[in-house]
Design a protein around this nucleic acid. Structure first.
Length: 703
DNA sequence: CTCTAAGAGATTTTT
DNA sequence: TCTCTTAGAG
């Protein structure tokens, strides 16, 4: 039995799968069979080591990955892995909190709110406290709250702030927490923090779970944040095994709090002497791997590994230099057609870009040419307005004190309750009680308006009691007036379809999880916003950001916009180790391709309403020339000899001095009619300087 | 309450 | 340039 499990594994894979005791860090390069190792290890534990399924906990970052892992394990062992805890960090914490809601200090019917909901919650908070959202941008407050939660910090635990601004932020964090308590809502970070705190505070509970989970397996370990790491260590106790799989070179979520350092920390904390390295790549050609290796080798902070393959070198990477972004899109189109000629399905072609804004032009060209395409990104199913409205009604049925849900639909469809009336109600509630409770205490003209609404909700509540799950959703969609509302709207057709789809989703959910209450469906909707990608079976060219492409692979990959300021992105240059993350991002992009890579950059690009003349990305210079073939040069080049990252001796990152603006560093160089440089001055901020007029001097670096 | 117009901001985003 | 948000008029 064990033989068939291990058949076809290479030595390091086999070593990882059959590790007897102690914790391990598996450093799994792109395309090295990471998922296979993880799933085979679990199957091996179950079958060979006879570990009961309930003693295993497997964590991933996405629902998709969790599902895939589960199916693959079940395929390996030939039966269901019931009893095993397998899911995302958030999904598992949610499960834990539903079970221990009382100990966690939560309401039994707590609702999970997504980032959108969180933002509107903060918005309400600002209004209530009369705080200028110019001075305190919503996004910034949200970032502040989430960042602290992800560090495990409650408002009370923050070091005292010295300035007014910091004090205000702390106050807002505190007020936000109070609001969530009152509304029985829990945001994403809160799921983790609550679970962590409960485990930390409740010894009996902690010991119970520590004894239960003999094996903790974590996928994409490089993406864990500080709190997730602490949660894991708490759960692992002193003698449970942690089996972490990840790739430091593919850590691209630093900006969201992922801590690449958790890999080294794990090795220290769990006495792991050497990571197990999976370096044989089964995906790409030799040329593609050479390029990827060369690029990533320039990063300093690495655990170190080098991908290799038994496959042939294959075709060289093709570099196209376009004269502008239109020309670049035309080139992609041309090449896509050529690939199609060779009978390659469209779905095996991906066009990757650094930022979403770049997709529009590509879409336009593909559309014109009648080539099917699919753009990843944008709103997902459960994030759509009409779906959120329907869910808000369901939330209210479940918990009328959910103010967020109340406010969302109190006047949708319109029932004459304007902002004036709502403000009066909020005044009355005084943050002491829920809006729902206040409704019943109101008197006068305003009261009657709200009465129609509360009666509606109560009627729906009653109607739902006798109904099965999907019928409840159906009843709400109809009874709330939402269906009629969107039926009348001009462009409401798609929304109506989506509402029908919601009913289907509910039916499917109750089928798969019989006996699970409505609250779980709502949690499911929040935690799994739905797929971004193509409908299965659809043959379309795949358009997405490099981030979205992680974990995927394609026969042919186009990587467009390889220009300074776009990739690497200009904002990244000023961030701490931003350039290294950009380089990892490139590494991810390159390793998506199995057979063929097309790289391109434009000499001129219209960006933010301005024509820009970006330089070719410095990253292109990192790719060995012998595997890089230039297949096209702009027809009417603006600059005959396209420079690299330096022009006339000036280079990006260089420190310069200006007689008026003082000292600064070069953020960007452009060559159009003349050479312009973008300098970030210490005193005066970003300024464009034309070298024909500006007199700047290089400054000796003495830091 | 809904519609229009003006203004700010424009990386990446698994949950 | 484009898109999303908010303010003010109708």
């Amino acid at each position: 039995m064990s033989d068939s499990l291990l058949a076809g594994l290479n030595p390091p894979q086999r070593h990882a799968v059959t590790l007897e005791q102690g914790s391990a860090l598996v450093l799994a390069g792109a395309g090295s069979g990471k998922t296979r190792v993880l799933t085979t290890r679990i199957a091996w534990l179950l079958q060979v080591k006879q570990v009961p399924a309930y003693r295993i906990l497997a964590v991933t970052f996405t629902n998709k990955a969790a599902r895939e892992m589960q199916t693959r394990i079940e395929g390996l062992i030939g039966q269901s892995c019931r009893g095993m805890w397998i899911g995302t960090f958030h999904g598992l914490c949610h499960r834990f909190l539903r079970q221990h809601w009382r100990d966690a200090g939560l309401a039994q019917n707590f609702a999970i709110i997504d980032m959108q909901d969180q933002l509107s919650a903060i918005k309400r908070l600002l209004k209530q406290h009369n705080i200028d959202s110019e001075r305190y941008p919503l996004k910034q407050i949200q970032f502040f709250i989430n960042q602290n939660k992800e560090q495990g910090l409650r408002p009370q635990q923050l070091p005292p702030a010295h300035d007014v601004y910091g004090k205000q932020l702390q106050q807002l964090y505190l007020a936000y927490q109070a609001q969530c308590e009152q509304e029985h809502t829990v945001d994403f970070a809160e799921l983790l923090l609550r679970s962590y705190e409960l485990l930390a505070a409740h010894a009996a509970l902690r010991e119970h779970y520590q004894q239960r989970f003999a094996h903790l397996l974590i996928d994409e370990f490089q993406d864990t944040n500080a709190l997730q790491y602490r949660w894991l260590t708490l759960l692992s106790g002193s003698d449970n095994q942690i089996f972490a799989v990840g790739d430091d070179d593919q850590s691209i979520y630093g900006f969201r709090g992922a801590e690449i350092g958790n890999m080294r920390r794990l090795m220290q904390d769990y006495a792991i002497e050497q990571p197990i390295k999976l370096e044989q790549n089964y995906r790409s050609t030799g040329a593609i791997l050479q390029a990827a290796n060369a690029v990533i080798a320039r990063n300093q902070q690495r655990l170190g590994k080098q991908l290799w393959t038994e496959a042939a070198e294959g075709a060289p990477l093709k570099l196209f230099q376009a004269n502008n972004e239109q020309n670049e899109a035309e080139h992609v189109l041309e090449q896509v057609r050529a690939l199609r000629q060779q009978a390659l399905p469209y779905s095996e072609i991906a066009v990757l870009y650094r930022s979403n804004a770049q997709s529009r032009l590509l879409e336009h060209h593909l559309f014109q040419a009648g080539i099917p395409y699919r753009v990843y990104g944008g709103l997902r199913f459960f994030e759509r307005q009409e779906i959120k409205h329907a869910l808000a009604y369901l939330r209210l049925i479940l918990d009328p004190d959910d103010d967020a849900a109340f406010l969302r639909v109190v006047n949708v469809p319109a029932r004459g309750i304007g902002s004036r009336s709502v403000e009066q109600l909020q005044q009355f509630a005084q943050q002491q009680q829920s809006l729902w409770q206040s409704c019943s205490q109101l008197t006068g003209r305003v009261a009657s308006k709200f009465l129609t609404f509360t009666l509606l909700i109560e009627r729906l509540q009653e109607a739902c009691q006798s109904l099965d799950f999907a019928s409840q959703v159906e009843a709400v969609v109809k009874g709330s007036g939402l269906r009629e509302f969107y039926g009348q709207e001009k462009e409401g057709r798609e929304r109506l379809d989506n509402l029908d789809e919601l009913v289907n989703a509910a039916a499917l959910f109750s089928q798969t999880n019989p006996e699970w209450p409505l609250a779980d469906f709502l949690a499911h909707a929040a935690l799994e916003a739905g797929e971004h990608g193509a409908k299965p079976g659809e043959d379309a060219v795949q358009l997405m950001t490099v981030h979205a492409a992680k974990g995927l692979e394609f026969h042919s990959v186009f990587l467009v916009g390889l220009e300074e300021s776009l990739f690497p992105h200009e904002n990244a240059l000023s961030e701490h180790s931003g350039l290294e993350e950009e380089r990892r991002l490139l590494y991810v992009a390159l390793t998506r391709a199995r057979q063929q890579l097309f790289l391109s950059h434009a000499q001129a690009r219209f960006l933010h309403g301005q024509m820009r003349y970006p330089l070719r990305s410095r990253f292109v210079d990192d790719i060995p020339a012998n595997i890089l073939q230039t297949i096209g040069v702009a027809r009417s080049p603006i600059a005959p000899h396209m420079p690299h990252t330096a022009v006339d001796g000036w280079f990006i990152g260089q420190t310069v001095e200006h007689p008026v603006f003082g000292c600064g560093s070069i953020a960007q160089i452009e060559r159009g009619q003349s050479v312009r440089i973008h300098v970030n001055f210490v005193q005066h901020g970003l300024k464009w300087l034309d070298l024909r007029f500006a007199s700047i001097t290089p400054r000796q670096i003495n830091r």
